[in-house]
Write a protein that binds this DNA or RNA. Structure first.
Lengths: 347, 347
DNA sequence: GGTCTCCGCTAATCCGTATTAGTTAGGGGA
DNA sequence: TCCCCTAACTAATACGGATTAGCGGAGACC
C-alpha cells in the first residue's frame, strides 16, 4: 500500500495541517464559501498562504465525486466515431457539438465501438452512462437500449428525427420533408415532368421523410416519378439509359451517411459518358459535405449539420439541468442548393 | 436536497441491497476479485444478475478516486478538437487515435477549450486528469503545465516531436528532417539551382526540423535558397515575380496546421496568373490532407498522421500500464509525394 | 471434546472534497 | 449573574467504489 502511493499532490488536509485548521475550513476558504459560513479574515489569509506555499491544485476527481456531476457529454455514433469512408457526412455534426459543448463547459466523451456485435454494442451502451447525458447519431434506433435509457430518465438526445419510440425520444432533426418537396418543385419549374428517385434500400425516418416530401410534391404537381430502392449494385449504366429512354429527364438521389444512392447514379453516368445537366439533371435530397470544390456541385439542399449539433447539445444540457418545459423535439430548416447538375428539361 | 436528487444511476449499494449482500461483496464480484477472496458461485451469480437487471455501470469518478483507472484516454488539442478552418490537418490523427483506442478498449475524452485564455487553459489542463492519460496535439508546448504533469508522473504523449522540455516529454513525431531534405534533393535532380523557401513566422520544432532538413540538403547540393518567414500578408504576387526574376525556379512551402505559407504562395501565383510547374515548381514540406481530387496535387511528402495517432495511443497505454523499458520517443518516416506541381527546371 | 483451518462474507476504512449540523468561546443585555 | 446570541470553526457525513482485516460457522484432525 505505502509503496504504491504515488508522490501525490498536496491535499486540503495538508493545507489544514499547515494552517492549523480543519480540512472543511480549507474547503470553505478555497471553494469561495458560497454557503456564507462565517470566516475570519485572519483564517482565510492563513489558509490561502498555506495553499499557495504548498502549490495546491484541487483534485478534479474528488471534486466531481462530491458534485455527482461529471461535466461530460457522451457522443455515440453506432459506427466508428471518425469513420473513414463516411467521414465528411458526420464531421459537421461533431463540429457543432464540440462548439456548443465547449460553450457550455462540458467535455466530450467519445465512445469507441470497436465491436459492432450485439453484445459489444450493449456493453458500450452501458458505458454511455459515464457521461451526464449522451448524444446519439445514426440512421436507426436500437429500441431496447434507448427505451431503457428513457425509462431510467437518462438524458439523451438523438441527432436526426426518430419516431421509433413514439413521442418519448428527444431529437434535433432537419426538415427533410419540406426540403425534398422543394427540390421536386424546382425541377418541375425547370420543365421536368418525369423523374426517377433513387433511395437506400433500408427504411429509416430520414429516408421516409425524404420520400414523403418527394411524393407530396409529385402529387401536387402531377408529374411522374419512379421510386427505386438500391443497395448500390442494381443501379447501373443500362438502368440509367433505360430511364432516359423512357422519358426521365431528372434523377433525384437520396443523400445518406453512406451516399449509396448518389454514388451509384454518378458512377452509372460516368460509365455511360453521360453528363449533367446536359444529358439529364441530377438532384440530391441532401448535400455532400466533402464535395471537392473542383467538381460540379450537386443540386439539392443544405442540411444545417453544425447548427443541429449545437441545438442537440443545448437540448441535452437542458435535459441534464432538468428544465421541465423545454421542448424535446426540434426540426431545423434546410437551405436550397441550386448546384451545377440541375438544368432545364430538354424539348 | 431531495428535490435535486436526479434519478441517479444504480450503485453497488443498490446491487447489494437487491442481491442481499454487502457493498464490498459486490465490489469484489464486479471487480474480478483480484485479491482472491473466497466467494461462492451462488453469491457471484446473484450479484451479477442483480447488476445486470439494474443496468449497473461503475462510476468512473469514484473508481478513479480509489483505484486510479477509468479506461479513458484524453485528447487535448489546444484548439478546437474539430477545428473548422484547419479541420483536414488534424482529422487523420484523430482517425488513428480512435482506431487504436478502440482496439485497446479505451474510450476517448475530448477536452473542449472554450476559452483560450491562459486561465482558461489552466482550468482545462486540470480537467485532463480525469483521463488515465492524455494525448496532446499542437504546434507548441505549454511548458509549465506539461512540466507539472511530468513531475507528477501523469502519463502523456505528444503527437509531434517536441524538445522544449528536454528529454522528458514522450512523443510520436514524423521525420521532417529527412523528408524535407529529400524534397530538396528531388528538386535539385530536376535541375533547380535556386530555391525560395517560405515558412511560418513563429518557431516550433515542426518548423525547425523542416528548415534544418532543407538547409542540410541545400548545403550538400550547393544550390541557393532564400528562406522567408511569413504570416501570410507579405508573400504576394510582386514578391513571387521578383523571385522568379532573380532566377528562382522552385518555391518550397512549409505545410503546417494553418497552411499559411502554402496558401500565400498559391494565392500569389493565382493572382499573377502563374502556373505550376510551367512558370515555377512548387513543392511542399508536408502534404495537404483535404486536397481536392480535382485540383493539382502538390509535390511534397506524406505525413503518416493516422499511423502517428495509432502509435501515440500505443505509447500512451504503455505508459499507463507502467511499462518500464518502453521508448518514450518515436519518429515515423514520411513517404515522398511526387505531385503535379513539380517539374524540370527551365534552361 | 477441544483446537485448527478454511470458507464466505462483512465491517471498517480510505481516496479528496463539499456540505450541513453542531459546538465552543466570548460579548451583550436584563 | 444568568441567558442568549453571534461569530468562527469543526465534527460528521456524503459521494461510489476498492481494499484489508477480521469474524462466525463448519468440518477436520488429534
Amino acid at each position: 500500500m505505502s509503496r504504491d502511493r504515488r508522490p501525490s499532490r498536496p491535499t486540503q488536509a495538508d493545507i489544514a495541517r499547515l494552517a492549523g485548521v480543519s480540512q472543511p475550513t480549507v474547503s470553505l476558504v478555497l471553494g469561495g464559501n458560497k454557503a456564507g459560513v462565517a470566516l475570519s479574515e485572519e483564517t482565510r489569509r492563513r489558509v490561502l498562504r498555506a495553499a499557495e506555499s504548498l502549490g495546491y491544485v484541487p483534485d478534479p476527481i474528488a471534486r466531481r465525486l462530491s458534485h455527482r456531476r461529471n461535466n461530460l457529454l457522451g457522443l455515440y455514433t453506432f459506427t466508428a466515431t471518425f469513420p473513414t469512408d463516411v467521414q465528411h457526412s458526420y464531421y459537421p455534426f461533431l463540429v457543432g457539438v464540440e462548439e456548443e459543448a465547449a460553450a457550455q463547459g462540458y467535455d466530450l466523451l467519445l465512445f469507441t465501438s470497436s465491436s459492432s456485435t450485439e453484445a459489444g454494442a450493449t456493453e458500450v451502451l452501458n458505458r454511455v452512462r459515464l457521461a451526464d447525458g449522451c448524444l446519439f447519431l445514426g440512421r436507426h434506433v436500437p429500441e431496447r437500449a434507448m427505451g431503457r435509457f428513457l425509462d431510467d430518465g437518462y438524458p439523451l438526445v438523438y441527432i436526426g428525427r426518430h419516431d421509433e419510440l413514439g413521442e418519448r425520444l428527444p431529437y434535433v432533426g432537419a426538415d427533410y420533408v419540406s426540403a425534398s418537396a422543394d427540390v421536386v418543385r424546382r425541377l418541375v419549374e425547370l420543365g421536368h415532368r418525369h423523374l426517377a428517385y433513387v433511395r437506400e434500400k433500408d427504411d429509416a425516418p430520414a429516408s421516409a421523410d425524404r420520400e414523403a416530401g418527394l411524393r407530396s410534391a409529385v402529387a401536387e404537381t402531377g408529374v411522374r416519378a419512379e421510386v427505386v430502392r438500391t443497395d448500390g449494385g442494381d443501379v447501373d449504366t443500362a438502368r440509367l439509359r433505360s430511364w432516359l429512354a423512357d422519358g426521365v429527364t431528372a434523377v433525384v438521389a437520396e443523400e445518406t451517411d453512406t451516399d449509396i444512392a448518389v454514388t451509384a447514379v454518378e458512377s452509372a453516368a460516368r460509365g455511360g459518358g453521360l453528363r449533367c445537366p446536359d444529358d439529364f439533371s441530377l438532384a440530391l435530397l441532401g448535400d455532400r459535405v466533402g464535395r471537392s470544390p473542383g467538381l460540379p456541385a450537386l443540386g439539392g439542399f443544405a442540411i444545417p449539420r453544425r447548427e443541429m449539433g449545437r441545438a442537440a447539445v443545448r437540448m441535452l444540457t437542458g435535459l441534464i439541468a432538468g428544465e421541465p418545459d423545454a421542448p424535446i423535439r426540434q426540426i431545423l430548416g434546410c437551405q436550397p442548393l441550386p448546384g451545377d447538375t440541375v438544368g432545364v428539361a430538354p424539348h
